[in-house]
């Protein structure tokens, strides 16, 4: 009797450690805010509640969401974040577009673009984990490096209309772009893997306390290195998503996305220092921050306010994250 009682407490302790109080509340608050935003915008401009908006927002979510997944892995592992995802994604989109123009078939072109993402992720991992450069500085430097090199060679590429990418990936399923479902699958798998598999728990352990993880025989460097490489992989996939939309890929297409990615993760409840947070909150926050730009334009605010609002949202997200950590 008493032993089963202890087992029960232990299990309960484990469960409550997996699902700390507050995460459900975070998700709920974010979803309610999103609902309020949608209702308010819909009342003001009935045209907002249209299939067109759904497609626009869903595409936004698909592109940003895949990068959020990647950077989320990095943040969870305690390596803070990766600022180079935006330019990596756009470069991989340019690569796939250029290769298609040159007459490559889709699968090898796709492979090259994704491998490029992996390469950048590995480079980041090397800079941060082996050279010991702080993640912000290393990935900021990488961001300038990649975008500079890319723009030396190519500024924009038109995507051939008859390519597999335009034919297949651009379509819709259940009224929502296919790429959205791709994002949803990637996001859900990563969320589940982090929550309930052994590698996922190692990731969380390293993010929560690298010293303790090392004492248990987990190599923080290896785990964080894998996190950076996966993040690069996600950036490469996001590039494919970007290339599947529109007629041309432009090097200036994603300016500022890396900052929105961080806002989404922090608002969604991931701790900047790693090891805490759940992907359900992140999804709610992705929904909110991807709807916001479209809603703002509907409210009649000039789109040049967009970066101002994104910057302020990032500041708020940082403050909220800091308050949450302090409460702990």
């Amino acid at each position: 009797m008493s032993t089963s009682g202890i087992a029960l407490t232990n299990r309960w302790a484990r469960v409550s450690a997996l699902a700390p109080r507050g995460h459900g509340a975070t998700t709920l608050v974010l979803l309610l805010t999103w609902l309020a935003l949608v209702v308010a915008t819909g009342l003001r401009a009935p045209g907002f509640l249209s299939g067109q908006t759904v497609v626009a927002v869903a595409f936004n979510m698909a592109f940003v969401g895949i990068m959020v997944t990647g950077v989320g892995i990095v943040m969870m592992s305690g390596a803070e974040f990766d600022l180079s995802v935006g330019v990596t994604a756009v470069t991989s989109a340019l690569i796939v577009a250029q290769l298609l123009v040159e007459g490559w078939s889709f699968p090898p072109a796709m492979l090259v673009a994704v491998l490029f993402g992996v390469l950048i992720g590995a480079a980041n991992a090397w800079l941060v984990l082996w050279l010991g450069i702080h993640p912000i500085v290393a990935t900021l430097g990488m961001m300038f490096l990649v975008s500079g090199v890319t723009r030396i060679f190519v500024d924009f590429v038109a995507i051939p209309r008859d390519s597999f990418l335009r034919q297949q990936a651009a379509g819709a399923w259940l009224g929502v772009p296919r790429v959205f479902w791709v994002m949803l699958v990637v996001f859900t798998i990563v969320g589940l893997v982090i929550r309930s598999t052994r590698p996922g728990r190692h990731l969380v352990a390293v993010g929560g306390n690298a010293q303790a993880a090392r004492a248990r025989g987990i190599s923080p460097r290896r785990v964080q290195g894998v996190a950076f490489v996966l993040c690069g992989l996600c950036a490469g996939i996001a590039g494919l998503v970007l290339a599947s939309q529109g007629d041309i890929v432009q090097s200036s297409l994603t300016a500022g996305t890396e900052f929105r990615v961080i806002s989404i993760l922090l608002l969604g409840g991931l701790a900047l220092t790693g090891g805490r947070g759940r992907f359900s909150g992140v999804f709610a926050s992705l929904l909110l921050l991807s709807t916001l730009p479209t809603a703002i334009v509907t409210w009649g605010v000039s789109s040049s306010w967009q970066p101002v609002i994104e910057g302020l949202v990032l500041a708020v997200a940082l403050a909220v994250n800091s308050l949450r950590e302090k409460k702990r």
Partner: peptide, 18 residues
Amino acid sequence: PLPLTDVLLGLTLIGAVS
């Protein structure tokens, strides 16, 4: 080409910290 300046800035930042 102008974007080379960005490459320079990126390399400077990483190089300086190294």
